[in-house]
Design a protein around this nucleic acid. Sequence first.
DNA 1: TAAAACTTTCAGTAAATATTGAAAGTTTAG
DNA 2: CTAAACTTTCAATATTTACTGAAAGTTTTA
Lengths: 170, 170
Amino acid sequence: MKLNEAKQQFVQLWGAFGGAWGINKTMAQVHALLLVSTDSLSTEDIMNELSISRGNANMNVRELMAWNLVYKDFKQGERKEFFKAEKDMWEVATRIAKERKRREIQPLIASLNMLTDIDEDKRVKEVKEYVDMLNSIHSIVSKMDSAVDTLIKTEENKFFNAFMKLFKSI
Amino acid sequence: MKLNEAKQQFVQLWGAFGGAWGINKTMAQVHALLLVSTDSLSTEDIMNELSISRGNANMNVRELMAWNLVYKDFKQGERKEFFKAEKDMWEVATRIAKERKRREIQPLIASLNMLTDIDEDKRVKEVKEYVDMLNSIHSIVSKMDSAVDTLIKTEENKFFNAFMKLFKSI
DNA sequence: TAAAACTTTCAGTAAATATTGAAAGTTTAG
DNA sequence: CTAAACTTTCAATATTTACTGAAAGTTTTA
């Protein structure tokens, strides 16, 4: 397969699977487009490449910046804003995980805590069964939360180690 | 909080977060309703409890059965079908993971393999950068795939061990 | 075999979500 | 300061997704 053909198909693929990772289709396409672009792109470039409106392009780029997946990249002598994607895919995975943890896992844990607090006799079978079920959901979700923390820590350590390497020769 | 109030709120909560786990709102509500019900429920019960149509109730129950999260439960002397949910939440997590692996991870891996196969000179920087990025996505997604396999294996072993216990006394 | 009891399907409709594009807002250059 | 270059907003609209309910299909009973 030719490079440019593959890149285009990757944009489509990433768009189609975006939904599965909690990211909407166009946002995922913009992300993919920036991932496969050697240079950073302007809003106009994105509009043209994906055939989408200015408003849509702008909105999705903002959202990608909110997820920390895309940065502004100012070019010498250009007034326009350009955008480039974080290309270290482990970093990307970490940031998506971090964001979803914040948006989904943590509020869920908080709600589960509320709903487990029943002021009826826990020796009654029906009460016990309910509380046990909620506790086990709580335990699973907490474990996922910890798993994400581990991933984040691992990435942070990688960064720290890379940073320390700079001083190794001293 | 009172048990019944909590149960109702749990149905709403599970519905709201369902989307995040790749499950649609009503399907998640039906699931939650069956999870908190002591007895198994008929289509009519579900329609009434959730104020949804017969078609909708039927469709979502079928879908939950396709995900292996809900079973038919025939009652003595009743002609109607009744449904009950798998209540072991680790088992539930495993089955959701299994299904998402099948629907999302595996097709994604297959597509990534296609898109990594570029017939241009890999010494060219642009080609190399693209291939490296795709390989690192591939590596991450494969790791998630393996993680799911581990989860499934763990559950299967639990089942096997429980099964073996039955013969312990022999 | 007929009709009652139930389940499934699906065309039409409703609801939710995403997109457009023109107008308003902001920044920079001259 | 003000016009040009650019970014952001948001009401209107389009698209996608989910839901309804009546009709068709199936199974059971008598």
